[in-house]
């Protein structure tokens, strides 16, 4: 049965070691929504989304994910695309080997001869197809460009067939051309009805996909509304890229409406 609400927070608090960083968070996200989470660095947006992933402590209030209390939900149904600037590791791994990690929660070590190996391979191939890396399954991940590595991380999350994708800065530190490709991937996912929660500084790059904007500031959700209202509020045009068509768009210096939230802190 498909979930009624994907994320349902009521006065929820999240933090570390018993100390709340985010509190009083109330929001309800329905299937199919693509939500941008904006806000200055250190204001709590990472703490909030990582709370939904079980990576920070849920301290009080109600936090339901996929209609179940956060602590009981099947983690495989929540896809996570972490903020990573490089996938290069101290050992070599191919794109397919990294994406296969996404299938791992479905496997049991005591059944290495399991019959679903074929299904795993299919899921990995499909995930790579969606992010446009089908041809590079066998490539060494450290040889890929930053944008391609970001798409590998998206494919790893997709391989687990999640009901919701939580992404941390998927477009940060990626050149403009690759941002357009990434935005295209997110559009494909949105068109398939994938619910997404995207922490970002680059709203403009994702303007075509976003259906809702949350602003996290001073440890709580301080604003919640449509992209159009957000544009009106900040006064900056949230103009969409029609990626891949007009080259003149690519040279337009991207002035990000979210700059108004950046208190001059440089995010890595």
């Amino acid at each position: 049965m498909p979930p009624v609400t994907i994320i349902d927070l009521q006065d929820a608090a999240f933090g570390y070691a018993g100390t709340p960083i985010v509190s009083g968070a109330t929001v309800s996200i329905a299937p199919g929504e693509v939500v941008a989470v904006l806000g200055p660095n250190g204001a709590g947006k990472s703490t909030l989304v990582k709370g939904l992933l079980g990576l920070t402590e849920h301290l009080s209030g109600r936090a339901n994910v996929l209609d179940q209390p956060l602590e009981e939900v099947d983690r495989r149904r929540i896809g996570y695309v972490p903020q990573r600037h490089t996938l290069a590791n101290s050992v070599r791994a191919t794109v397919a080997e990294i994406v296969a990690i996404g299938r791992l929660p479905y496997r049991s070590w005591w059944r290495p001869w399991r019959r679903d190996a074929y299904a795993d391979r299919q899921a990995i191939a499909r995930a790579l197809e969606v992010v446009g890396l089908g041809e590079r399954a066998g490539a060494d991940v450290s040889a890929l460009s930053g944008g391609q590595q970001r798409r590998v991380l998206i494919a790893r999350a997709l391989a687990a067939s999640p009901d919701v994708l939580i992404m941390d800065e998927p477009t940060a530190g990626v050149d403009h051309a690759n941002q357009l490709i990434l935005a295209g991937v997110l559009e494909t996912l949105a068109a398939r009805g994938t619910t997404m929660l995207i922490v970002t500084h680059e709203l403009q790059a994702l303007a075509d996909v976003i259906t809702r904007v949350l602003v996290v500031d001073e440890g709580t959700i301080s604003w919640d509304g449509s992209p159009a209202d957000f544009t009106t509020m900040t006064g900056a045009p949230l103009d969409g890229h029609h990626h891949g068509h007009s080259p003149e768009h690519r040279s337009t210096p991207g002035h990000l409406p979210t700059d108004t939230f950046d208190r001059g802190s440089s995010h890595a």
Partner: peptide
């Protein structure tokens, strides 16, 4: 596969249970 996954990205491994 588990040793590889945890060593590759511990945070992701934790998030996926």
């Amino acid at each position: 596969p588990w040793l590889f996954a945890v060593a590759q990205d511990e945070e992701y491994a934790r998030a996926s249970g």
